[in-house]
Write a protein that binds this DNA or RNA. Structure first.
Length: 475
RNA sequence: GGCCCCGUCGUCUAAGGGCUAGGACACCGCUCUUUCAAGGCGGAAAUACGGGUUCGACUCCCGUCGGGGCCA
């Protein structure tokens, strides 16, 4: 039998890392099993579902290369299917219309709470005769549709956790639809899972308590129950489910910040699963080969940004400057960085070198240019910054003058890394006296790439100008 | 509050009756170095607690505590 799994988000907000991880586990399992990965958009809540969030979901999956084999399938387009199921459930007496008003229900609920009973529907309308129902219908009394829930303990198997028991008496006859054409989550989901031939339901652990309700629909319709596997939640750094409220960023925000999809995938798969051995860096290809659903961790994992940063840095350093350039050129989310690639002061070759220098010091693509901004804009600094160790302004100034004179005498054809190093290294016993003020003069920063690399990019003329500026500051 | 899930370094995890409880991120130190980053070397750091079962428990069972989720 072919494995079929689905990722079924509601388009009610931007997709964050917690959700996309569910998609990733589904995707990886499907590919490992040579199965089918389906995208289903659960948009039955018309109030909260938005087109922009549907686009966000699709774009996020695309960026991370988690493309669905089927879908997107929209629940909002399948109302007719749910209607048929609801009618069948009503016909078979597995579900019934409930005409109780909100006020009635609330009073009953309060009474149950006072008595210390679990608040649940008491089943009044399940006892209505055909005549009573027809009468209420003809009067246009508003109603909802409830499922008849047997008074028993249900046991279902979770692929990761084993048997989970649930006392159905705590649920009561719950509402499965607001009307024949307005199905609720607990109806639409199992109906779709059945009709879309889903074999394995891999979803977040927050759905464990929902599972008995959905299984009841399967049972009422006499359908084969799929395998359920509830993967652990990702918790925010302060504890608590990862959510927008906890400051969880959306997938596409990470994209905007210049994170690499490979790093995000690598990071997320390691939250709850790990390959054999001590491997930390793993490609999608390897994940697909090695993934075993049964090896997935049960305990919730706390989201740790530092590790994501580390992984991203590793993937970033693997890219050549040309690859980084192409990423920027082809990603509309990084469009504003193009100005750095098209700067007329530098040749293509020099821009590649700038990227190379920035890349070593950056966590993500955007940071590359932050660390080498001095190549692109005028800068200023306090003259105190020029001071190396305990040297005086006078000594620093002399050092800079010495450097300047030396550089001035170097012919253009000898202005290369090896020669510059050879000459500058011998100027002072304490190399810091040469390089620190020079570096500050060239960058205005206390932390930057090495001065020789910078000089080769900006050229002799600009270098001398910047040194002059520093000398002037000290005069 | 009721029900459910989960408990190994700060974090992600490895070991599923016998190990000096391993790795990675982060942290600290040393090294390299003009600075930063990266690299190299080293360090500190965990089986929540209490009872069982067993010759032997991080591992199995029970309880407590703690964290999380769902419903209200």
């Amino acid at each position: 039998m072919v494995v079929r799994v689905r990722f079924a988000p509601s388009p009610t907000g931007r997709l964050h890392l917690g959700s996309i991880r569910t998609a990733l586990f589904n995707f990886v399992f499907a590919k490992n099993q040579k199965g089918v990965f389906i995208l289903r958009i659960e948009d039955t809540d018309k109030e909260r579902s938005k087109k922009e969030f549907v686009d966000d979901i699709i774009e996020s999956l695309k960026w991370l290369k988690l493309d669905p084999d089927e879908g997107p399938i929209f629940q909002s387009e399948r109302i007719e299917i749910y209607r048929k199921v609801i009618e069948e459930l009503l016909d078979k007496g597995k579900a019934y219309r409930c005409f109780c008003s909100k006020e009635e229900l609330e009073t009953k609920r309060q009474m149950q709470i006072t008595k210390g009973e679990p608040p649940r529907y008491d089943g009044t309308c399940s006892k209505l005769s055909k005549e009573e129902i027809n009468e209420k219908l003809s009067k246009g009394t508003p109603y909802v549709i409830r499922l008849k829930v047997p008074e028993q303990i249900i046991t279902f198997k979770d692929f990761l956790r084993g048997d989970i028991k649930y006392d159905l008496r705590l649920i009561g006859d719950f509402i499965i639809a607001k009307s024949e054409t307005e199905p609720l989550f607990h109806l639409a989901t199992p109906v779709d899972d059945y009709y879309q031939g889903i074999t394995h339901i891999i979803r977040g652990a927050e759905h464990i308590p929902n599972t008995p309700k959905q299984i009841l629909i399967f049972k009422a319709m006499n359908w084969k129950i799929p395998v359920y596997a509830h993967i652990p939640l990702i918790l925010g750094e302060g504890g608590g489910k990862l959510s927008k409220r906890h400051g969880a960023k959306s997938v596409l925000e990470y994209r905007e910040e210049g994170f690499l999809p490979e790093a995000i995938i690598n990071f997320l798969i390691l939250l709850g699963w790990h390959p054999k051995g001590d491997k930390e860096i793993i490609s999608m290809k390897e994940i697909i080969e090695e993934f075993r659903l049964e090896d997935v961790e049960k305990r919730p994992a706390i989201f740790n940004v530092k590790k994501l940063l580390w992984l991203n840095k590793i993937y970033l350093r693997r890219l050549s400057s040309v690859e980084i350039e192409n990423l920027i050129l082809n990603d509309p989310y990084l469009e504003d960085l193009k100005i750095y690639l098209e700067n007329e002061n530098y040749t293509k070759e020099k821009i590649h070198k700038i990227i190379e220098l920035g890349k070593e010091r950056a966590n993500n693509i955007r940071e590359i240019f932050e660390t080498v901004k001095f190549f692109y804009q005028d800068f200023d600094y306090n003259k105190e910054l020029l001071i190396w160790k305990d040297y005086t302004f006078e000594q620093i100034k002399n050092s800079l003058i010495q450097v300047k004179n030396t550089l001035e005498n170097i012919p253009e054809e000898k202005f290369n890394a090896d020669y510059l190093k050879q000459v500058l290294d011998t100027l002072n016993e304490d190399k810091g006296l040469t390089y620190w003020p020079l570096r500050v003069a060239l960058t205005g920063l206390e932390a930057s790439p090495p001065p020789i690399d910078i000089m080769l990019i900006i050229g002799k003329e600009k270098t001398l100008k910047l040194i002059d500026k520093a000398i002037e500051k000290l005069s």
